[in-house]
Design a protein around this nucleic acid. Structure first.
Length: 753
DNA sequence: ACGCCGACCGTCCGA
DNA sequence: CGGTCGGCGT
């Protein structure tokens, strides 16, 4: 079968396009991923392009993984050699090979936002910058913006012009960069800028990659920043055998879905692509295959309020479908309650499954109230993006050990763990070592090694030396021939006594931490087993640094998924709930009162457009009249975006005020209810397991009257167990949350001692 | 050196 | 409301 058969004429043109720059303006749901994968497959199969001559840059690691799989499905081979990855991963791969040409070591560390902040705090302290007046966060974001625009510390300094704030920022930028270099570390932005720097200064490295990447594709092109543009431009400017520049660059984007201006995305990259690359061919994909007419019309109406867009109009052959629904609830509690109940109702009555549903919101903070409800109702769910696994203390600690072993120059990592677990090395000691290191121009770790020579450290140097020899021991072990990297964490835990200390604590929190560490061990083992090249410590650490929460999103898992509108980009769901459609929430407070509200509101509107176009079958919008935010009640009007939807497309619901069992009720009434139930105490029975067809019921390990533990609710007492459908329904009176009915298979209750 | 507690604060979105 | 940081007390 011809791989072109399933494509529409425009898609076909894009796939068949031969050489030279190509801009594909792909509206939401117009099958751009299909075009990209088919184009790659076509290049390999019909144009004799070698898989290793193709570079495809995607937005997430997940998208990269899927693209490879899909190319494999079409071509059946070769996908392994295609270089498909995100901007950041691409740059890391390049830098691991060539960064020594610009004065770093190839074992460089990658600093995450936390590390950057820690470093910036040190810098501010050193430069006497009052972080009350100039918060380190604002300095970091100024630096980040500068890096997005490829502005060096020196150039930044020149542009200061006597402005006090800018002058301080310039100083901080310079010092920050100096210290990153000394730590042999790169922050997220450096990954891009240092790659550009490498290519600008080292022709050999540039030519190597220009020759290698004969065909370049970039997805989500509207969200690239200036540095990324520069990178792509450099890579695509190679000279072919005939001595000509071909610019075999194919970018796919949609200016209406540009939602990352806040992190430096430069909309001009897509708007003036044709100017940057002469003889660009432009193809518009305007047929939407995803949504019903009602949903698509709604999206078009909303986005029409933006000015200065590229001219295009999305249409669909799909059926009209139901009108979009909008409900204004009394409160955020009611909103969460009603939406979660409705989803359950649809799943139970209409044969939908939980993974058909997404709840989308503007800010991560909004997930909390939904989570409470979903737990309460025993509805399986997954929240994407709220608390990063790798940001947890115990995980960062272990990773800091690994970084220290991998790159002794990483001062932030060494300082993090020098006294974790406690070894009696305090602030004064650390300061003295630090001063010595700065004075002698050596790393913090090197200063530790020489601590015996440092004046004033007579007493603590023995403690320091035992730390040093522990690290050295681990490092030697790592470099032994048959050492299995998968054991490294265990060895660290063993040498440091980290686990023993947590064990001794014996609290719930400590147990949580231990299970998180177990999880990290699992990830390391998986990495070692599945690594494409030889697994290395640096390799693992960079994988960890560059994963995003969305990469772990598994659409086949049967749960509702909750995430921000930003995270939802590129995804689709049959049923979409967009909640918190309120002025001040969405569009956010910050954009309404910004210096340039027009611009900011337009970005919010594009975000709204992205949200609407995620829905395939049914879209539900909602707002709340009152909502609890940062401890106080706020009262918001419905979002302007709601008013931009014509009435004929939208069904406005009146919320049904059926009395809902809310656990925001006062606890005492629930408590007396419980007392009542205790009076007519039920006899102690554990129901016999009934093996129903298709169910996998197992005998419960607890019975009525037992004390059990729930992962969120904590300790409680079982007051009733009944058979509900294919699962046990367990009623538990929790010490802190009161009485709840839970389904045994979801709740995963365990006997508490 | 370390732990606890209270004040404070600041809030968007993210690799 | 929740996390974080700095100060103070031991």
């Amino acid at each position: 079968m011809n791989i072109l058969d399933t494509l529409n004429p425009e898609q076909k043109r894009a796939v068949l396009h031969d050489k030279g720059p190509l801009l594909i303006l792909a509206g939401a749901g117009s099958g751009k991923t299909r075009v990209l994968t088919h184009r790659i497959a076509y290049l390999i199969e019909h144009r004799n392009v070698k898989p290793w001559n193709i570079l495809a840059v995607t937005f997430t690691n997940k998208a990269a993984r899927e693209m490879k799989e899909r190319v494999d499905q079409i071509v059946g081979y070769g996908s392994h050699d295609i270089w498909v990855s995100t901007f950041h991963s691409t740059c890391v791969r390049i830098l691991r090979r060539f960064i020594d040409r610009i004065g770093y070591e190839r074992s460089f560390s990658i600093y995450d936002t936390d590390d950057s902040k820690t470093l910036m705090r040190e810098v501010c302290k050193y430069l006497d910058i009052d972080t009350k007046r100039i918060p380190e966060k604002s300095i970091l974001s100024a630096i980040s913006r500068a890096k997005d625009e490829l502005i060096t510390p020196e150039e930044f300094e020149k542009s200061v012009n006597g402005d006090y704030m800018l002058k301080k920022q310039a100083e901080a930028y310079k010092e920050y960069q100096k210290r990153l270099k000394a730590s042999n570390a790169l922050d997220f932005d450096d990954l891009i800028t240092k790659t550009v720097e490498l290519f600008m200064t080292d022709k050999e490295a540039l030519t190597y990659y220009q020759d290698r990447f004969r065909y370049i594709m970039v997805d989500e092109y509207q969200d690239t920043n200036t540095a990324q543009f520069r990178l792509i431009h450099l890579l695509a400017s190679g000279i072919n055998e005939q001595g000509k520049r071909e610019y075999n660059l194919c970018v796919v984007g949609d200016d209406d879905q540009s939602i990352y201006k806040f992190r430096g995305a430069n909309i001009q990259n897509i708007l003036s692509f044709e100017k940057s690359f002469p003889n660009t061919k432009i193809i518009k994909l305007e047929q939407n295959y995803r949504s019903t007419k009602s949903i698509l019309d709604t999206a078009n109406e909303v986005i029409a309020n933006n000015i200065g867009r590229k001219d295009k109009s999305l249409w669909t052959d799909n059926e009209k479908g139901e009108p979009v629904s909008y409900t204004q609830f009394e409160s955020d509690i009611e909103e969460a309650d009603s939406i979660t109940s409705e989803i359950r109702r649809i799943v139970e009555n209409n044969g939908a499954s939980y993974n058909d549903f997404a709840i989308l919101y503007r800010t991560n903070a909004q997930s909390r109230i939904f989570e409470e409800r979903l737990i309460q109702k025993n509805i399986p769910y997954k929240i994407i993006g709220s608390v990063n696994f790798y940001a947890r203390k115990e995980i960062k600690d272990i990773l800091a050990y690994m970084k220290t072993i991998d790159n002794g120059l990483d001062n932030i990592a060494v300082k993090r763990i020098i006294n974790v677990p406690r070894r009696g090395i305090g602030m004064t000691t650390i300061d003295r070592v630090n001063d010595y290191a700065l004075l002698n121009g050596i790393s913090f770790y090197e200063a530790l090694v020489r601590s015996q020579q440092i004046p004033g450290l007579e007493r603590s140097s023995s403690k320091i030396m035992s730390f040093v020899s522990m690290i050295e021991g681990l490092r030697t072990q790592l470099h032994q021939k048959n050492y299995n990297l998968a054991e490294l964490i265990d060895d660290i835990l063993d040498a440091t006594g980290y686990l023993r200390e947590l064990d001794a604590e014996g609290t719930d929190e400590a147990r949580d931490r231990i299970s998180n560490i177990d999880e990290l061990v699992n990830k390391l083992v998986t990495y070692v087993e599945e690594a494409e090249d030889t697994p290395t410590l640096s390799g693992f650490l960079e994988e960890v640094a560059l994963v995003s929460d969305i990469d772990s999103f598994d659409e086949s898992a049967d749960n509702i998924v909750l995430m921000t509108l930003h995270s939802a980009k590129g995804l689709e769901f049959p049923y979409v709930y967009m909640c918190g459609m309120e002025e001040g929430i969405f569009p956010g407070y910050m954009s309404i009162y910004a210096d340039n509200p027009q611009e900011e509101i337009e970005e919010e509107r594009r975000l709204c457009y992205v949200g609407i176009t995620r829905a395939m079958k049914r879209l539900s919008l909602s707002a709340a009249k009152q909502r609890m935010s940062r401890g106080e009640m706020s009262y918001n009007k419905p979002s302007r975006f709601i008013h931009e939807i014509p009435r004929y497309l939208m069904k406005v619901n009146v919320p049904d005020n059926e009395p809902t069992k809310s656990f925001a009720f006062n606890k005492s009434s629930l408590f007396s209810e419980y007392r009542q139930s205790q009076k007519n105490y039920k006899p102690f029975i554990t129901p016999e397991p009934r093996h129903l067809a298709g169910s996998n019921l197992t005998k419960l390990e607890y019975g009525i009257g037992d004390k059990v533990k729930h992962v969120k609710f904590g300790i409680g007492k079982v007051t009733d167990i009944t058979m509900g459908g294919k699962d046990y329904e367990v009623t538990v009176d929790f010490e802190r949350y009161g009485i709840k009915k839970l389904l045994a298979s979801f709740a995963k209750l365990t006997l508490a001692d």
